[in-house]
């Protein structure tokens, strides 16, 4: 039996979520309709509200309800430290895992010439302008450890040096609790090259 048109539309809409194919979209739709109408209404309201109210922070470009996000608006954060990440999710991860007290700049991507994403598309001119203001003393590069993330870090470091800003890159190494024998070759090789004095 075919789905009702309205149910079909719901299934199609759910498929915009990452990792959700036709089968799981169908399961979600019927779950909401048959077992959890309250949940469905809450979800609809939350989506609607978030869609209306969430925008980009003027300074760091992460998601925010106001012109400035909570981090950028917080007067107690250290404005001389700026951490560059690829996505808002990376900002969240750092906020939760570290005691970092500086500010962020979210690239919303990474340099990827074959996808047509160059410095301009990432808004690196705005980052340059921010550095030119002179408030930032250290730029922390926390892009991913992929070839594209490394190239992005590399490119930004040249921009930062033009503005005489100190540039650091987050370290890369053996995971906590990791035993060398079981760590993959690349991670071990990076960790070895990044060794430091004790």
């Amino acid at each position: 039996m075919p789905h009702l048109p309205v149910v079909q539309r719901l299934i199609e809409a759910l498929r915009c979520l990452p990792g959700v194919g036709p089968k799981s979209a169908q399961r979600m739709a019927y779950h909401l309709l048959e077992r959890d109408r309250d949940g469905a209404r809450r979800l609809a309201r939350a989506l609607d509200e978030a869609g209306e109210r969430v925008r980009r922070c003027r300074l760091c470009r992460s998601l925010s309800e106001d012109e400035l996000c909570e981090v950028c608006a917080n007067a107690r954060r250290d404005r001389s430290l700026l951490c560059v990440v690829e996505t808002p999710a990376d900002t969240q991860a750092i906020e939760q895992a570290t005691g970092y007290r500086g500010l962020y700049f979210v690239l919303m991507g990474r340099l990827s010439p074959l996808d047509g994403i160059g410095p301009e598309e990432l808004g690196l001119d705005r980052l340059g302008a921010r550095l030119a203001e002179g408030e930032v003393r250290e730029l922390i590069l926390a892009t991913n450890f992929t070839a594209e993330g490394e190239a992005t870090a590399q490119y930004i470091s040249t921009v930062a040096r033009e503005h005489s800003v100190r540039v650091t890159r987050i370290a890369q190494g053996v995971p906590v609790g990791g035993e060398l024998e079981y760590v993959d070759q690349d991670t071990l090789s990076h960790a070895f090259r990044g060794r430091r004095d004790l």
Binding site: L114, A147, Q154, D186
Partner: peptide
């Protein structure tokens, strides 16, 4: 599978690698 150790490209070498791939 990995076929030998990873190449360490950095700086201009890394950016040039993207040029070659393109």
């Amino acid at each position: 599978e990995a076929d030998g150790p990873m190449r360490v490209l950095a700086g201009v070498g890394l950016l040039s690698g993207f040029y070659v791939n393109e």
